[in-house]
Structures are given as structure tokens and as C-alpha cells.
Amino acid sequence: MFPARFDYLRASSTDEAVAALAQHGGEARILAGGQSLIPAMRFRLARPSVLIDINAIDDLRYLRETGGSLLIGAGTRDAALETSELVTSGYRMIADVSVLVADPVVRQSGTVVGSICHSDPAGDWGVAALAGRAQIVVRGPAGTRTLSADDFLVDSFTTALAENEMALEVQFPRPSEHTSGAFAKLERKVGDFATASAAVQLTLDTSGAIAEAGVAIGAVGAKALRVSEAEQLLRGAKPSKDVIRAAADAARKEADPGSDTRGSAEFKKEMAGVLVARALVSALERLGVGGMA
């Protein structure tokens, strides 16, 4: 099936894209990789009457570290991350996502920022953005503003973007030497949406206790969910099987999935806990703390 009719505009600069958004407002959508938007349009779940293609804006295609953060431009494709030494060496949780999101061909088109803007509750990048305490830079006619992932991801397929705004960049703070993370995902096959997923990021203090924790789960609620209770349990605790179990239980409690072809609500709640535990074990291993499995 083909999507409903729309007008196609190709923006050659961010200025042009923002001007087009200002003109067409809620009728328009930004088109980057199209790997979520085009299927949504084909199923008539999305019906924009104008598409503003930003693929020709080379200025938006970057992956670099500046000011202590990894900056990913709106034009940067998933595939750029999995082969980036910067990502694989310094951002372990993101590196995990980069080889699990979609499939290897879709990753050659799909973009990180586009996935976050799509705010699919089963998408992988929203979960990572919460756990990694990412910020999203958006631009509208009045200039740019920066939102936390928590504020940006509002609901299923809904973000804090105003009709005349576009997302320019996502920023992941650089994990310190004593910080690592992991992403775990249960999927029926490569390229499927998650049945459930979990992203965690932990910082240890000099005594080996957990100083800071980010825990988020995906595909088990209306949007990617932060598990604040798990974060509180972990913060200040020495790594142990008990605290991992408690954090996993908090994730089971936070999860509020629906039953569908990927599994029953009960199963997905259970998996949210299992995946949080697995991700915590793997993050701790990466921090040199073994024996937690």
C-alpha cells in the first residue's frame, strides 16, 4: 500500500527546513531516514500532507565529542555509530544499541534522532536516551532550546516538539572512567521491535559503591520508561546480587505493557525485570565487578 498523497520538499539547510515547518506547521513532518515514518505513512498511521526531507543537509550529519558529550546530528545514520571507535570505546551502552537497533540494512538509513522523535514505546533509542541522560537540541523560529530526554519523550509517538520545531541533535554525556552501561533487548527476530528492552548506566565511586544510576525500560508502557525506584535503590548501594534483584523487581513493577503478538503483559513485565538484571550484570562486568550473574 502506498501512503496518502503528500507534497515533498527537499531542504538544503536547517534554515530552510525550519522555514518550511513554520509555513506548513502541523501538516508537515521532517523526513530523515524514513525507516519509521515511511512504514507509519504506508499503514496510514501517519498522514502528513508535507514531507520536508533533510537528507541533503550535510551539516546535520555528524558524530563527534564536544564539551564532554557525544553529539549525534539529526542526519546521522545508525550505521555510523556501530563502526565508530569513539562510540565503541567510550559509550558502551550506546554501542550495544547500535548493533541491536533494527537490522544491518535498515541501520544504513535510519537515524538516531529520528528514532527518538518517533517516540515509539518499543524503539531502542528512547530507552538509551533516558538511561544515558541524553539531551535533545531542538530548533524553531525563535531559536534553539535543549530538553532532557525525560521532558522530550511525552507519550506514544508524541514528543515535546512544537509543530514548528525540529530536532537538530541528541547529546549523550560522556561516561567517566568509572561509568559504564549496557543495553539488553528481547526480540523475536533481528529487526523486530523489542518484546521488552532495558538500558542501564552506572557510575562507581572510589569505594566501589554505585554513585549514580540510570535505568530505563522499553516496549512495556506508553513510552520508554525511566525506573526511578531502581535508580534510587542502586544509588549508594554496593554492587550485589540482592540490589540487582531489587532493581529488577522495581522494573517489573514500573512496567505496564499490553498483551500482543510479542507476548502477554505478564510475560513482558517479567522480561523487563530480567533484562534490567542482565544489563546491570553486564554494566558491572564492564566496570570490573564480576560474579553478579
Binding site: 523526513l31 524514513g34 525507516q35 515511511i38 514531507l51 526531507d53 535498515v106 544504513q108
Partner: peptide, 28 residues
């Protein structure tokens, strides 16, 4: 599949990028 799952529509874009052509508009 016509939904970017199966990959039998893959073509090469600008000689380097494999794309699923069922999930790209010709105008792109």
C-alpha cells in the same frame, strides 16, 4: 514483505549504502 523486514528489495544508493527500496520514496 513491503514493510522493510525481508530485504529482497535492497538496492545500492550512491554506490555505498544498501537501502530497502520499499521504504524509500523515489523522490528521495
Amino acid at each position: 514483505c513491503d514493510t522493510s523486514s525481508c530485504g529482497c528489495c535492497v538496492v545500492l544508493f550512491d554506490g555505498e549504502r544498501a537501502v530497502k527500496s520499499c521504504t524509500m520514496f523515489a523522490v528521495m
